[in-house]
Design a protein around this nucleic acid. Structure first.
Lengths: 197, 197, 197, 197
DNA sequence: GATGAATGAGGATTCATTCAT
DNA sequence: CATGAATGAATCCTCATTCAT
């Protein structure tokens, strides 16, 4: 079996897992259910993942990689200023999550399951993401766009907190709103608090 | 058994559950463990709660009631202005959570477990809490303290999001920081975004 | 539940396990099968034994205790001489095993399963049993009944080996012979090799 | 593929199986592990053996053939007397087993696993081996070297039992003793019991 | 012949819940 | 009211075996 085909099947399992876990919760989802949706036998799952938990981790890793790659592109854009970058990052965050509700559910709900998961897995990659946000804030301070008194690292968490809550709110909302609609207000509030008076 | 004694035992079970669930997670905690810590027999739990899940709900209800009662006191204070009220509410939120780490863990981590719990239980009482925050924002708009363009309901979610993320961050931090120390920066940022220029 | 009733149920589970394991082998026997024969639910097994392996250990312990208690009675009999004691011990060994074919099967076949089991469990109690045999040989040497050149510990193993092989042979024989019939020949051979010329 | 090369691969699989099964037990050894050590694919195993159990049987057959061939050589030696032959057979038995600890472990421990294996497979070839021992005893009786009262078939089992127990004891001993050292004492005891007074 | 990916049946164990005492 | 022994459904994972390549 070629590496490509193998990878394709791995992705199929991950995709199936996202759907199932989003709908039934991590503990409510059985490995058999994931296998069923992926169209493979139960045992096959274990040829691609060490354990049920490893699937959850892989979902996180794969998605987080996408976030970080895109965010890095924004941060490193020499053309844009700090405010523009932050605005684009907010848009990125909400757009990526808004594009896949199942994935968003897992991010906003299932990854919060256990301190264990949050500490060991989420937070490591998360730090990287937060670091990228912080670097934008730092750039803004340097360029005199943002207030010099704000703490970059702390602010990054605030920004993330707002985005996170908005995403959670969207995920839990029954109404089928578009997450993108929240980009503008979110930017206004956050930039309002950061901008130099 | 008097209603008082009965209620006391109920509270003892809830207290035991908070400790256990905070430390081992909801799914990692067995009913037997809770019973053990509460000093009652396994079966006794079911004389006070319909199911294991009902315990989680009750923990939420009890704590939420305290939040709402206190928040209402702040909102209804005729003396204070909107900015002062918001500042005090932020302080309340972070102080109450910071006073009981186990409870904070459950709020920030365990309640996120399932969409089911979040939808059916958390959000109902949560709406009430968010409504109180929104009423402060409305008051601020009316009094010309806050920008007229902000949406009260949306802003309430933003405020909550920031507080929520700060609490989660505190819960997950290894360092034994005091949550109260975060009140000031949080107020600055949020009020900075709301205040009329 | 009284300690007596609890102990009775424990014994019932052990008895059921002996029958099942003797007939289907340790690995061929499921915990559910044992529970079924014992007339309890699957989960009940685990209120009495830590694991499936613990059942096997308990079977061994219970039986071995009986062997050792009886053997000790023989060894400590002040009336009998060494030859008489050895003869009685041989009879004891073959009679006890011959009385319960299922138990004999487990002793002769199932306990040999794994080095692990043999090393950790069997051999500790077994040493005690072998020690009792050796003490008879020692007594015989002291009294001038047995040859002074034999090594007591080594001889004990030889005696045990012969008894063990006879038991295995009986267990595996299709014909329904009586094990007791083998006592005489076994004694003749073993005592013949030990007796002072 | 020539018959020779095919046979060589078959032997390689058997050798790998002996090592693995001796170290991890029959049930603790997976077919994949055996294949890995033999340097073949999992599926290849099934081109050479019908099943996992068939491998165990083949190990037994191959080793037993060696025992029987050598034993036959001893029995048919016209030069030696019965006592000498028995002495040499004891030496053969202990030496062959002592030369390959892994094989010895399998013989003394793993073959005892199941009545099934013992009954259907072991005992058939074993009868042949026991028959050779018995023929030596018979010869001894005929020549007046051994007591006329001993039963040849029964005695063969006794002899085998002693050798078997010695081998098991050696296998389970932690100390790295040489099995050959046990030949002398074993002969003394067994011949002592057989010899005509 | 050889491969090794895929299969799927099977089983030990846990634990929320019940109910006889 | 309280107990805690008993229940039995539910699930993750293993691994002997097969078969398309």
């Amino acid at each position: 079996m070629t590496a490509t085909r193998r990878e394709a099947k791995r992705q199929r399992i991950l995709d199936a897992a996202i759907v199932e876990i989003a709908r039934r919760g991590y503990y409510g989802t059985t490995v058999a259910t994931i296998a069923g949706r992926a169209g493979v036998a139960d045992g096959t799952i274990y040829l691609y993942f060490k354990s049920k938990e490893a699937i959850l981790v892989s979902i996180f890793e794969r998605a987080m990689q996408r976030f970080i790659d895109e965010a890095r592109g924004i941060v490193e854009d020499a053309q844009a200023g700090a405010e523009e970058k932050l605005r684009r990052l907010i848009e990125l965050h909400l757009t990526l999550l808004g594009a896949d509700r199942d994935l968003a559910v897992i991010f906003q709900v299932e990854f919060r399951h256990t301190l264990h998961v949050l500490e060991l897995l989420s937070r490591s990659r998360l730090q990287e993401y937060l670091g990228l946000i912080a670097s934008i804030v730092d750039e803004g301070k340097r360029d005199g766009v943002f207030r010099a008194t704000v703490d970059a690292s702390f602010t990054a968490k605030i920004v993330f907190g707002v985005l996170d809550e908005m995403a959670t709110d969207w995920v839990l909302a029954k109404k089928n709103t578009r997450m993108a609609a929240r980009v503008g207000p979110a930017c206004d509030l956050l930039l309002g608090g950061l901008r130099r008076p």
